[in-house]
Design a protein around this nucleic acid. Sequence first.
DNA 1: TTGTACGCGTTATCAC
DNA 2: GTGATAACGCGTACAA
Lengths: 344, 344
Amino acid sequence: MIDPPSTDRRRSTGRVTLRDVALAAGLSPITVSRALRGERAVAPALADRARAAAQQLGYVPDPAARALASRHGSQVLVLVPMLSNAVFVDVLEAVHRSLFPQGFHPLIGVTHYDAAEEELLLRTYLPHRPAGLLLTGFDRSEAARDLIQRSGVPCVHLMEAPTLPGIACVGFSQTDAAAVVTRHLLDRGRRRIAFCAAQLDARTLQRAEGYRRCLQDAGCHDPALEFLCPERSSMGLGARLFEEVLARSPDVDAIFFCNDDLAQGGLLAANRLKVSVPGQIAVAGFNDLAGSDQMVPPLTSLRTPRAEVGRAAAALLLDMMRGGSAHAPRCVRLDFELIVRGST
Amino acid sequence: MIDPPSTDRRRSTGRVTLRDVALAAGLSPITVSRALRGERAVAPALADRARAAAQQLGYVPDPAARALASRHGSQVLVLVPMLSNAVFVDVLEAVHRSLFPQGFHPLIGVTHYDAAEEELLLRTYLPHRPAGLLLTGFDRSEAARDLIQRSGVPCVHLMEAPTLPGIACVGFSQTDAAAVVTRHLLDRGRRRIAFCAAQLDARTLQRAEGYRRCLQDAGCHDPALEFLCPERSSMGLGARLFEEVLARSPDVDAIFFCNDDLAQGGLLAANRLKVSVPGQIAVAGFNDLAGSDQMVPPLTSLRTPRAEVGRAAAALLLDMMRGGSAHAPRCVRLDFELIVRGST
DNA sequence: TTGTACGCGTTATCAC
DNA sequence: GTGATAACGCGTACAA
């Protein structure tokens, strides 16, 4: 009857550790660690032995221990404004697809377009030592910027594409994109073009700016035709805005909705009111969301490169996470595409 | 000039640690730890001193160290099939709202309705020592079940509500819900009622079952009117299904779509084809998603308690995570509500 | 190239 | 009720 010595204070979780693998392989733990992480400077033969033993014992590295010992963990904090906006779901999907196979795990946070919430999320998750940061846009609190800066965690900004020195971003020009839509309506012979927007976040306002400039250049901008509404975007709101535009400016011959959900709602309102589209009023949306091609008539929209944004941002971040500061932050500006359909 | 001794191999990250707080407060680290976690058995006076010092120094606990030293971390792994399905976005939102203020952090994983993907996610994230698990439904691989079981992590299942001993779940009866919709169509005098479904995951099939039983009970079930399609759900597919139903069974007088996106697509197809709804064909959906109230005519649908599911599941999980095995797993069955609108 | 020694920041265990 | 000690599992630093 050999009792374990009372000095045995182990509180092992029972899981297989690096030490177990090392023992089995007749190597030191550190060598196994190096081998398993694919570090150079390990003799192929030893590396094989290490891998074999790990495989055999079903060894799985402990992320917590890893995060504690090294400077950071495997998670990449991804902050988006809202999951009910399909745009960000597409971005997240692409981010996951790029990051996960490389051993990085997206940690999704939702800010609800609220700087204070974003700051709280950063305050909460930065201590988790994420390996990287993926943030939407540039519109955040000073404190948040500070937290990010001082954390030293590599960070890529999504959805916009200004050229800022020392800052990494992947996106497109919201302003130019909106101008393209507006230009299209002008090309269709429309002159009384209304702009309807909700949410009024930074990117929405950039779109408003694109619309405005384009019409000013054409000499037919009328501030009375801008309908900016701080409520959150929805089909219901789109319908209400459509009716409001009609009531306030009966001579309007086109409406540019800043997002497809609004536009779809607008189109349905037109159906209800028996307003002919595009006969009386042309309707254009933005983002080319699901269902826009099914509307009656099908909705003209601007397809934004969401998946590409996610992919490119992940690639850029991977570079930065691995290359240390070697890889300078870049700014990637992607293209978009106008999808012309029956509504214009 | 006092150089640090060369034996000082510290590689501190510069962050404020428990030791720093303890030093400042004139206490031992463990006492500070206990105080900050609100453990009993700490003299109020000391606890105050500890909190004050922590506050002063801006101490933030390190989740990695915490996860390593204790049995698990602060994250709760939440696995949902798809973010493009608004249902799960609502669930996630409610889960976050309930968990986050309690110091638990949702870690979102997307399975794409794929058992293998779910298994991979579990294999990847379980080693992160999540404090709890929130999984969608019961339809998973044997290996996944095993991983969950052996991890010992408290787990609550979402969206369904079978009574299984020793298993926790929060949901509603998909079968009953679908039967309610079908019953409604019968009550409206319809007899040739088609059922259109996509995705064909477990819950969709449960809805099909509810539809079937209800019609069988009424003596007017016709297997030829079940249109089950494995593709993923979308408005476009709903439109195609609508046309297919019309082509194959021109005498159909109602269609029950298993999800609102399909139903919305169906309604738009009806518009295009000038098929009168509900004159010729009544249309009902499921889930009461955004926009269904905006359709022309507005879509009758069944409002499912997504937010409540998220809330209740989080509450139940919190119980389990805190109470240890004291709190027995329960099964919470929630109500749903039929929303009757113009389409029926 | 490999291994030794130790630190990462916290909590569990046990003695006082 | 409080604190010393060790352990959690791994990676960094440096020596050999």
